[in-house]
């Protein structure tokens, strides 16, 4: 034993022990349990939500998603840093907005990145989309927004007939043709590739735009059906009847409080609460009450060390003799 250990354990009775044997036994037991659970229960692997699936099964939702980027109604349109320059929209607590500290590091122009650039690819082989895109680009920003906003609103009354999205008549300019171009792109299974227009094709290394495209209504609708929304403890849930990240229950808990869940600064509030809790636990050895009174008051230690406290009693001596 080292000098430090000898000094600490001076006067303490020792018992025989085999660290390697104990380690091997525990490793063996855990391995067997893991193999049994994996063999019986397998693991969750719910397929991704792709543009092709949404375009074919929910064409109106797909169209609404595409138009939301033009009309400024998407969640990303005025998100703020690190994507857009809407710094006032960054989450803040007591006037402090950490999201602003590094600025816009993943710059996105939602109308251009999510609709216009993909449609420029479509316009190579679709003259109708090419003409619509030309008309749209030639219009003033105000006109573009008016067309897109009007079409976005009327999509609530849309029907899908003979493979086309039908809406009541109105002044939507070229936007319906552009939206139809996006829908065709999705149906063809080419949406994700077209969104990554600045990727090092054929290598796809970063799926930020593809993942952001459906992050609003479409993803929320799927998550809702699988009990994965924040207010459904989604942060710690897993698809199906599998245990998820249950160790994040304390984190998910705060999202069950309506005032926090509905706050525009909810993520920052929860993040700061969890950071504070982590720091409290980290410094527990130096925090009065938490470092002594509480663990002693709960008295679990008496049960853990019951043999030590009752050493000398016949029953304990017998257990110790059997344990070797």
């Amino acid at each position: 034993m080292s000098r430090r250990s000898e000094a600490y354990f001076h006067g303490i009775p020792m018992r025989p022990y085999d660290l390697i044997r104990e380690g091997l036994i525990v490793f063996g037991v855990i391995t067997i349990l893991v193999i049994i659970f994996a063999a019986i229960f397998s693991s969750p692997d719910y397929p991704t939500v792709r543009g092709e699936d949404v375009a074919k099964r929910q064409p109106i939702a797909f169209t609404k998603t595409s138009v939301s980027f033009l009309s400024g109604d998407s969640g990303i349109s005025t998100y703020g840093p690190p994507y857009t320059r809407d710094f006032d929209d960054a989450q803040k607590v007591l006037g402090i907005a950490p999201a602003k500290w590094f600025g816009v590091t993943i710059p996105l122009n939602p109308p251009v990145d999510f609709v216009i650039k993909p449609l420029e690819r479509v316009s190579v082989f679709d003259k109708g989309v090419a003409a619509a895109l030309k008309t749209y680009k030639a219009a003033s920003p105000k006109q573009q927004l008016n067309w897109a906003s009007a079409y976005f609103k009327v999509l609530d009354k849309a029907t899908f007939v003979n493979g086309q999205v039908k809406v009541p008549n109105g002044n939507y300019g070229p936007v319906p043709t552009m939206a139809a171009g996006m829908l065709n792109l999705g149906r063809a299974g080419l949406l994700e590739g077209a969104l990554q227009s600045d990727a090092r094709l054929p290598y796809q290394l970063n799926f930020t735009k593809s993942l952001l495209f459906f992050q609003d209504d479409v993803d929320h609708s799927v998550a809702n059906s699988l009990n994965l929304l924040g207010e459904q403890w989604g942060l710690s849930n897993e698809t199906g009847n599998y245990p998820g990240a249950w160790w994040l229950w304390p984190y998910a808990f705060w999202y069950q409080i309506p005032a926090i869940a509905s706050s525009p600064n909810g993520d920052l509030i929860v993040g700061l609460i969890m950071l504070a809790i982590f720091l409290v636990i980290f410094f527990v050895p130096f925090i009065p009450v938490l470092n002594g009174l509480l663990p002693r008051g709960l008295q679990v230690y008496k049960w853990v060390w019951r043999d030590w406290y009752h050493r000398g009693r016949p029953a304990v001596a017998e257990r110790e003799r059997k344990a070797g």
Binding site: P47, T48, V49, A99, F102, N206, L212, G230, G271
Partner: peptide, 29 residues
Amino acid sequence: NWDSQWIAVQAKDAMNSLGVGALFNAMNY
């Protein structure tokens, strides 16, 4: 899979709000 897809767009809000999003992009596979 779907879990990654959903967690990525959700986790990015938590990361961005804390200013970590500039260094760690949950959607960059």
